[in-house]
Structure formats: structure tokens, C-alpha cells
Amino acid sequence: MTAALAIKNLHKVYGNDFVALQGISLEVQPGDFFALLGPNGAGKSTTIGVICSLVRKTSGEVSIFGKDIDQDFSGAKKFLGVVPQEFNFSQFEKVEDILMQQAGFYGLPPAKARIQVDKYLKRLSLWDKRSQPARMLSGGMKRRLMIARALVHEPKLLILDEPTAGVDIELRRSMWDFLREINAAGTTIILTTHYLEEAESLCRNVAIIDEGRIIKNTGVRSLLQELNKEVFVFDAAEPLAQPPALEGLPVKQVDERCFEVEIEKGQSLNGVFDQLSAQDIRVVSMRNKANRLEELFVAMVNANKPENKEAAQ
């Protein structure tokens, strides 16, 4: 099957000799929901920039649904929709004009463009704002406008560069639902994000990029299986004079009603509850201390640091 996105040995050196990408190779299959994770400056936005041709690559190959971006520029671009990190539409244009123009840039005749524009104005709850200049929109509406703009020509591959940065929880959740919906309808989605909960919740596959290299490329589930231990936070019904004693498990008291228990992979939680019940400790709630993917991400990025690599050797 032709990959939705195939990147081979991609290098990028900026004019100031800053090496942003050091031979990235990556394949994203059609229909996938793929996360590209990495710390700031890791090379995520440069990679996206090269794919959508806003950044000139130094060497390497990029193809979108089998169309090489160097050999068939127009063909490759037709498959692609991009939602950049920063607002990049004319602040003075009306919302519907921005979408109509975008459809025109992809060669959609006005009648067909109008149907598409109306469809995405409604789907992204921008219909009431269609006649307003873009600068009058709230931050969340501007984000939705950028998503509508990226989708108006029905791309097969949608790339979103931190689409939910700075949006409130309610809007973030509704955007997640929308993205799940269009992915289910067949659109391949690549997402960069700093919210690892977002990647864990939405994506099936993930690549972690650091210092211009892919340090991990796998399924989200198999990545989570690499997690050796998790910390659970327990809330007790009554105040505790001291942390509960749990055989073989490290326990840390956070406050008089709250304590943390570190549990290794394969260990059962039933034993924990049995021991707590034996000590007359009634638990009213329990949760993961941190996002699981976040823990793995931090561990991997730390392990990739030169000083830690040397120490490991």
C-alpha cells in the first residue's frame, strides 16, 4: 500500500549552520492518526515545514500518497491540508472569503467551493461569524477557522501543528471529537502536540523526535507497554496519621488524606486494596499521578541527551 507520507533520510541545515534535521525517515500509513512528539526545537515544525514546502530541505525525499514533492509538486500538494501553529490568515478578510480563496487556490470552481465552504463553516460552528473579519474572532474561533481552511479542499492527509495550543478544555475536547470523526471518515492525520494526553487519547502511532532524529517510532499501545512502573494517587476517606505500610511497595504521603503508591508492571492493585482494607483505610478515589505517555516521553528524551548517553555507555 502506498504510504500517506514517506520521508527518507531528510536533512535540514539552516543558513546559520544550525542542523535541524539529521536524516529523518518516517512512514505514515493511510488512515492513520499519527503523533509527532518532541521537545521545543526538536525539529517537528521543520519537518512539517519541509512536507508543506515552506522550508527548503537540504537533502532527502518526501512523498505524499506516492507523489514526490520535488517531481510532482502540484500533485503532492493536492493531497495535503496544513494547520500551522500560528495564525497565518489575513486579519482583514472576512471568514468566508478566506475559505473561498483557499478553495480557489486548490482549483475548486466557485460553485463547488461555495458548497465546501458552507459545509465547513457549519461543521466548525463558524456559520454565524462568516461575514466578520477574521480579526474579530476569538482565539478558539481562529483555530477552528484554520482547521476549516485546511479541510476545504478535502485533503487526504491533514497535518496539524499543535492545533489545541492555548484553547480551553471544552473546545479542545470538541476539536478532538471532530478530528476523530474526520479520521474515521478516512482522512490520515498527523499531529504534533505538547499535550501528551492528546496524543495518547487520539493517536494510534507515534514518533518521538529529538535533536533532529527520530528516537522512537512505534504504536502508542506498544510504547505504553514499555512503561515499567506507574504511580497511583489514593485519596483516603479519613485523615491518616502516617503513610500506610504496604508490603514491597514504596508509599509516599502527600497530605493527611492523600498518598502515592508506586506499582511495578505486572503487579496487581487487588493486593494494595487488601492491605489498605486490613489497616481500616477507606479509599474514596484513585488516579494516575501523571500522564503515562508523558513519563515515557520524558524518560526517552532524557536518555537521548549526550551526557546521559555517555553515562549509559
Binding site: L54, K77, N88, R149
Partner: peptide, 10 residues
Amino acid sequence: RSIEELLVSP
């Protein structure tokens, strides 16, 4: 940066 709309298009 609205020129990017055109530069990203075919």
C-alpha cells in the same frame, strides 16, 4: 504570513 496559504497550495 497569509502568503503561506498560497505557498502551501498547488
